[in-house]
């Protein structure tokens, strides 16, 4: 395959960015999207140019490190997968592929396709945990947990923290991400004691980070590589309401 990559180049947080276009020949269908970028970067370095910086690590869809807009869609054209799981067989010979970083106020660009997602960590710090010190726990089987709830908690816990939801949302809302954590703990007995503080603190921190409001467009759910459900947002809204009345 022969393709062209039109990609956002920006040397650091302060500089202006712009698109540059690079042709690439000899792309095979079995290559992953990132192997294609590796090969483009190899050309760039050999030609004395700066390679395109992008975040990635596991290349298996689990670490949540990768994440770029490809042809205007977070994580590219296929539903339920991360950028690193895309293969070139999903693209056409001769195509110009447009590649951009996440765009959201709370995710400032660091370089090229790499953004700073520490805002997510700060939201987690504000309440995304159960307060238990190592050594305090009772036997794991003391509290039976209904399989349905445990499974629902696992569905929510599958979030990889990639940020596609907030990057996709026209309001840059992080509701899907935050609600996934709130839901996981709200569904489990271990999460009950801190239930109302958790949701209040996490929502406050989310607002403070500059994430926008949710207007129920549902775009996040469509682009989420782990198919985290909007039901979680509804659950978080209920949790929040309950916590506010209390």
């Amino acid at each position: 395959m022969k393709i062209q990559i039109k990609v956002w180049r920006q040397s650091n947080a302060k500089s202006e960015g712009k698109f540059s276009t690079y042709p690439l020949d000899g792309v095979s269908e079995d290559m992953s999207f990132f192997e294609m970028l590796d090969s483009l970067n190899d050309n760039l370095v050999m030609g004395g140019k700066d390679p395109i910086a992008f975040d990635h690590d596991c290349r298996e869809g689990i670490c949540g490190t990768c994440g770029i807009f490809i042809n205007g869609r977070a994580h590219g054209p296929i539903r339920g997968v991360t950028t690193c799981q895309l293969h070139m067989r999903s693209f056409q010979n001769g195509e110009t592929i447009v590649v951009e970083p996440w765009r959201a106020k709370a995710f400032p660009i660091i370089r090229d396709l790499i953004v700073d997602r520490q805002s997510f960590d700060r939201v987690m710090e504000s309440g995304g945990y159960i307060s238990i010190n190592a050594g305090n726990a009772q036997d794991a089987n003391v509290i039976p947990i209904a399989k349905e709830n445990s499974d629902l908690a696992m569905d929510a816990a599958a979030c990889i923290g990639c940020g596609a939801c907030a990057a996709t949302c026209k309001n840059s809302s992080a509701m899907l991400f935050v609600s996934a954590k709130v839901s996981q703990f709200a569904l489990l007995p271990q999460g009950q004691p801190e239930r109302s503080n958790r949701v209040k603190n996490m929502v406050d921190q989310m607002d403070e980070e500059g994430f926008g409001n949710c207007t129920n467009t549902g775009a996040c759910e469509v682009e989420c590589p782990k198919e985290i459900s909007l039901v979680n947002i509804a659950r978080m809204n209920r949790e929040f309401l309950k916590a506010s009345i209390m």
């Binding site: 305090n136 399989k147 445990s150 696992m154």
Partner: peptide
């Protein structure tokens, strides 16, 4: 395992 369950890790259940 006790510690992880207490942290709210949703291990598979019967």
């Amino acid at each position: 395992i006790d510690q992880c369950v207490a942290q709210g890790i949703p291990f598979a259940r019967e």
